[in-house]
Lab assay of single mutants.
Amino acid sequence: NITNLCPFDEVFNATRFASVYAWNRKRISNCVADYSVLYNLAPFFTFKCYGVSPTKLNDLCFTNVYADSFVIRGDEVRQIAPGQTGNIADYNYKLPDDFTGCVIAWNSNKLDSKVSGNYNYLYRLFRKSNLKPFERDISTEIYQAGNKPCNGVAGFNCYFPLRSYSFRPTYGVGHQPYRVVVLSFELLHAPATVCGPKKST
């Protein structure tokens, strides 16, 4: 009989979030998941669920729940959905087409922007091929755009693959930082360890 609440607040209220290319994953298990708490945590810009209804979450049980978190800019949030393409979905964080879970995003301009520009958040701009779903690539190998090998040196047709967002508070919403948490629900042929409040007794 599990009584402890799932530590969603640790994920959502973390002081620092990860850069999207090096997104963070927390496995959540053996706890009571009260998803209604999430609705009250922040004024969400996005709370979209796929393959599951957000209002039914509190009635369900899962084997595992994974919470992935990272920062992107406002106009990239739409890429965090099944079947999307674009720089983020292709080279940084890719959801599977049959994704079961929820994408939660909110504006973090007050936390993640600086007047002089916050350069701490990076994204991958160049990659030889698209990522597979939930693949994480943290390599910093020089990207070869031409025929000549780069031998690890940046220059003509040889690019450092990561680029930094420079978040400034005066930017338009599309270029402001957004914190994203992706909850993916895993149903294996194994005992369910993460249940809503109704199912945990």
Rank of each mutant, 00 (worst) to 15 (best):
S129K: 14
R179A: 00
F134S: 09
R16M: 13
S184P: 03
Y143R: 02
D90R: 13
S166W: 05
P43E: 11
F45T: 15
L131N: 03
I104V: 12
V153C: 07
T55D: 14
K198L: 14
Y39W: 15
A18G: 10
Q84I: 09
F70Y: 04
W106L: 05
A145S: 08
V11D: 05
T193S: 15
K56Y: 08
D112K: 02
A145P: 02
I72T: 05
Y178Q: 06
T63Y: 10
L57T: 09
K94M: 04
V194N: 12
Y93W: 01
L60W: 08
A14W: 05
S164T: 09
A14H: 08
N130I: 13
R168C: 00
G101M: 02
G152A: 10
V52D: 06
V11Q: 05
S116G: 15
V65H: 05
Y119L: 07
T201P: 14
N157V: 02
L122A: 13
P96Q: 04
R163Y: 15
Y121W: 04
N1M: 10
S36A: 11
R168E: 00
Q176R: 02
Y21E: 02
N147H: 07
Q84P: 03
G174S: 08
N4P: 11
N109T: 04
F167G: 01
N118H: 05
F126G: 03
Y119P: 10
Y171C: 01
C49R: 03
R136T: 05
G101A: 03
C49I: 03
N24P: 04
L131K: 02
F44P: 15
R16T: 15
F62D: 07
S166T: 07
G172T: 00
L5I: 13
V173Y: 11
S36Q: 11
S166A: 15
L187K: 14
Q84G: 12
Q144F: 03
G117W: 04
C6I: 05
K114I: 08
T170A: 09
P149S: 07
N30G: 10
A22V: 06
D68H: 05
N64T: 12
S129L: 08
H175K: 01
I104S: 06
N13C: 07
C158N: 01
V11R: 04
L41A: 14
S36V: 06
A105W: 15
D90Q: 13
R168V: 01
P197F: 15
T55A: 14
Y165H: 01
N58A: 13
L41G: 15
K114M: 11
Y35D: 07
G86L: 01
Y159K: 00
K128Q: 11
G152S: 10
T201V: 14
L38T: 06
V180Q: 01
